[in-house]
Design a protein around this nucleic acid. Structure first.
Lengths: 189, 189
DNA sequence: GTGATTTCTTAACAAAAGATAATTTGCTAT
DNA sequence: ATAGCAAATTATCTTTTGTTAAGAAATCAC
């Protein structure tokens, strides 16, 4: 875990063991709620094994807008960053092995490591990349039909199509599960 | 211009005059192309007066995905940051007064001011905020019907509805101009 | 102001999506 | 293995959008 960071920032090597000790390993079954809509997010989750989804309630139906898999980190985003209520829920899709860290510990690490300018550059680049990712994702909604979006997803993120139940994929694509089923039916012909 | 920066970072006061001298004031008519799809973006534009749109070609039709108004800055984004070809065009909607700066000059300013940690924090926060903005915008595409998106736009960004021609707003909402006209018609009843 | 051009609206039809409900398939726990 | 439950498919009907084309309204240039 965190090997890529050790390599990139060897000057912090003596500190990494301390930092890693802040993380708590947990094993949870599928459909476990890790953050509830309306609560303040205090934890960030690193996924060792399994997958998660972020969703929010809209007219009594849930809409999934993000998935996360192995080696990815998921938190309450704005809720985690600013300690405000989260507008979405985080839940496991598969039984998962996670490592969570408390915000106050992560803040301490960020505080200490920010002495190193490369660390901030690193965060800045990550922020830009995420921004670009959202932009591209958003553009596909303007540009493509639901059918094209589904075909894109198969091509660009086959792991999502493989591992995530269809109903979640449907709302992720901005359509109903019934409509996605029809699209799939059309495509086989 | 840049008064908010002067106030926030007074320690750079003696440098601001130099920095501002890098900016070039231009007045351009409506429908002026400032960056062409496929070209590398070397300039960032600060808008003193007027408004711009960013659009890309999709099946012989143009799709607008961003607007910018007074006191906002617009550049080729990834194209500007990484010196790669831009996938979109930047064009004036109204006759505009702009101040552009060359990337190499801006890089120099960023380089110098990054000695100040607050400056980087500032950029990091701005990046997070922009990311959040894209996310919210993207979520409205998953969550809302085109009609609701239009109503949202009237409520959240009335200046866009007021100043931007309808055909651009239509593609910004992910629908055809004909469909937006029908929605407007429906709403008056 | 007037003619020309662009933008917006309206109409007609085809294609696709939403809603609801019934049926089938697949998974889980015992 | 099978009963029970959740997920996916299919069917029917309504609503909305896309497409194309024609007409009305607004804007621009001279």
């Amino acid at each position: 875990m965190f090997d890529q960071f050790r390599e990139r920032f060897p000057m912090l090597n003596h500190k990494w063991d301390e930092y890693i000790s802040y993380y708590n390993r947990i094993e949870v079954p599928a459909k476990t709620v890790l953050l509830k809509e309306g609560d303040v997010s205090h934890k960030a989750f690193f996924i060792e094994k399994g997958c998660l989804r972020a969703w929010f309630n809209n007219n009594e139906k849930d809409i999934t807008f993000q998935f996360a898999f192995e080696n990815e980190i998921l938190s309450g985003a704005e809720s985690f960053r600013k300690s405000i209520p989260s507008f979405f829920t985080i839940e496991t899709i598969e039984p998962s092995v996670l490592h969570w860290i408390h915000k106050k510990d992560l803040d301490k690490i960020v505080e200490e490591t920010s002495q190193i300018p490369e660390m901030k550059d690193n965060m800045l680049n990550a922020a830009f990349d995420r921004q670009y990712h959202y932009m591209k994702h958003f553009l596909s909604f303007i540009r493509d039909t639901p059918e094209q979006r589904y075909l894109n997803l198969i091509k660009e993120s086959p792991h999502i199509v493989r591992r995530v139940p269809q109903q979640y994929i449907a709302t992720y694509l901005g359509i109903t599960p019934v409509s996605l089923s029809r699209i799939r039916n059309r495509l086989t012909k």
